[in-house]
Write a protein that binds this DNA or RNA. Structure first.
Lengths: 246, 246
DNA sequence: TAAAACCGTTGATTTCGGTCAATGCGGATT
DNA sequence: AATCCGCATTGACCGAAATCAACGGTTTTA
């Protein structure tokens, strides 16, 4: 049963009727801490929205009125320097939570990569729920803690890994996340994002990313049937590469 | 009134008698969320420890039994690759909280830089307190959120900034933190860490860090009366450099 | 249907930061 | 005072990744 759109607002978001109980990411997202009437209270404050490819959800510096949970598609988070250099700080997949703010201001920009669906929670309402349901707050703390740990892994990658190590780490990480989402095609990763997104995530240029993919293909470590599909031919080799053991 | 040591254990930690009410970082640390008898409960589970320079507090992968709050000195957090490459993920100063764990395992190594004092909280006991005092949990969430935001700034630095931009950002950041700690010497930063710590924090080599300091000195942006003291001669210039506006 | 725009790949060239090496400097030890 | 040691600095050189450029394939637009 598809979610029927319930109207389109001026900035290109589609509101959608939805049911949390039946949600695909129910066990991954913020809501996983809740059940029964707790979930009803959460459902009362949520709005489901859809974003078309390339649509900006919010900018760094905007007043942070909402937090979001991805239910389908993918979002890129990024920061910009004044001359346009970009650092992608994360890719948010179904189940992931976004909307980090400091002093009520978003800490990064968020853009849809492909067609993307999200749950939107007004911060004001959510804060009240947090007080009522400690389990929800625990869940939020847990998700923030996990994201901090991932950010520190990314620092190691950005500061000290070579291009091959970066690309290998990235592919394995994405593979692990897709597996956790129930992708059963083992050893195949689908890349929702462009080479330039990957480059800006890994602190490289598009050319270097492309050359590294080609090199891994030539060496027989991966296969590239299409530019957005990666097949792991030698996963152990890839894992060794990712940790700098070669 | 100094804190009298109360005995030294086999691994080189000194336990210390202490009073939270009179603590210097009372308003910065975890405890800032509490007052009165709440603070008493926290005090009941805390142990004050002292570390001599270079002492390891815990390793990445250790079972995470405690979390810590720095009260004086400085701690470096870092991750290692198998061949010894190191990424320093953060410097923890008085008021900062450390002990991030995923699945009950520490996510990084923690080492004292100089003589350092900390409050140690057993995770088990702290979790009970978190349930009893929501404000404490809010405080923890807030501190984790701030650290995540800082980690994302650091990703931008590591992935997209040039050496000068990295060093300038680092100096300004450290200056801001020392000011918040009540350092009243405006425009003077004292570096508790070595050049190699800085290099491993910024994703550079010692040589490049050293050359960049020298270059900034030659250009009259900073002064370097000693290798661990930085005087800002032209703060605006430094701020422009940090954001890549030159 | 042609033109344009975009994306990914590959090649040639350049450059910035890493590597290697030598020296200086201050504090600790004898 | 003399030696040593770790840390910081400086110089010379080199190489890996950035930059610049071109091309093929696909999608979008006119």
């Amino acid at each position: 049963m598809p979610n029927p759109p319930a109207g389109k607002n001026p900035i290109g978001e589609h509101r959608i009727v939805h049911n949390c109980e039946a949600c695909a990411v129910r066990d991954l997202a913020l809501c996983s801490g809740l059940e029964g009437n707790e979930l009803d209270d959460l459902e009362r404050i949520v709005t489901r929205i859809a974003l078309e490819p390339g649509r900006t959800l919010f900018y760094e510096g905007d007043e942070a009125r909402n937090v979001f949970n991805v239910t389908s598609g993918a979002i890129r988070l990024y920061k910009l320097l004044s001359d346009g250099r970009r650092q992608v700080t994360g890719f948010m997949l179904p189940g992931d939570y976004l909307g980090l703010s400091v002093h009520g201001i978003y800490a990064y920009c968020a853009e849809a990569i492909g067609e993307t669906h999200l749950c939107r929670f007004p911060v004001k309402d959510l804060n009240q729920l947090l007080d009522a349901y400690p389990r929800l707050e625990k869940r939020l703390l847990g998700m923030t803690r996990d994201e901090l740990a991932a950010a520190q892994d990314q620092m190691l990658l950005l500061g000290r890994k070579s291009p091959v190590e970066k690309v290998a780490s990235f592919l394995l990480d994405l593979c692990g996340r897709e597996e956790r989402l129930g992708e059963d095609e083992i050893d195949i990763v689908t890349l929702p994002m462009s080479r330039s997104d990957i480059a800006d995530y890994l602190g490289l240029t598009v050319e270097t990313v492309s050359r590294t993919f080609s090199r891994l293909k030539t060496e027989g470590v991966i296969d590239l049937p299409e530019s957005s599909r990666i097949v792991f031919k030698e996963r152990d080799k890839l894992e060794e590469l990712a940790e700098g053991m070669i």
